[in-house]
Amino acid sequence: MTFNRRDFLKVAGLSAAVGLGGNAAFELIFPGQVDAAEEMKQSPTELTAKRWGMVIDVKKLTPGLRKTITDACHINHNVPTIEPPKNLKWIWEAPFEHVFTEVEQEYLEEAVKESPMLAMCNHCDNPPCVRVCPTKATFRRADGIVMMDMHRCIGCRFCMAACPYGSRSFNFYDPRKYLPDPVPNTAYPTRTKGVVEKCTFCTERLVTGQLPYCVEAAQGAMLFGDMSDAGSAPRKALRSRFSIRRNPGLGTQPQVYYLV
């Protein structure tokens, strides 16, 4: 049998096409099946839950405490300090009327209107950012945490347009240029310019059996636990006090609750 150059090119081209399209086609037909086998614990001490969630007790937040909390997060995650408007924030202070825009209340006490809240990623049950991401660089884990793959993100910023809570930040600059050397936490990776990042509910700490940095720093003002477990700390707190969520009317099912 003769196998000339033309035949070779045909076969090579065809196999390349199959190779490129194979995984893609599989993903189209069985979305998520490829990486389904992940339910294993990574370490014996790992904290796991069916559905992670958070409760913030607004009354317990003092100005000093709010700063301790945001610093704990930003320093430990090597979030660079950059002047607005190209800044990055994972958890931040903002006045009540901006965090809870849908509570349009003209006669709300000035003190309440301007009282600072903490805003962060809501780890929605129905996250618009995940819906719009063209590469699955942002995805929802089985335990409800909305995560980022910094190595897959192409920096299109569609997720930033989609997030109704302003919880996502883009690395306009090379973040390493705005961090001291060595970085504050050498155990946590720094990011590169051109990718989007946000709060991750400290997945890196859950793996080693620790609570998120903010919860640890909050001295009881922030509660973290399994929302599917009626006996968990956040669920108990929700039973005892009145709580609100940010813009629930959008159907995103945010999993950060505010005790007011």
Partner: peptide, 15 residues
């Protein structure tokens, strides 16, 4: 794009 070199990810991970 913030990461133009990764634009092929749209094809590699069709969503």
């Amino acid at each position: 794009l913030g990461k133009p070199a990764r634009v092929n990810n749209v094809l590699l991970h069709p969503t």
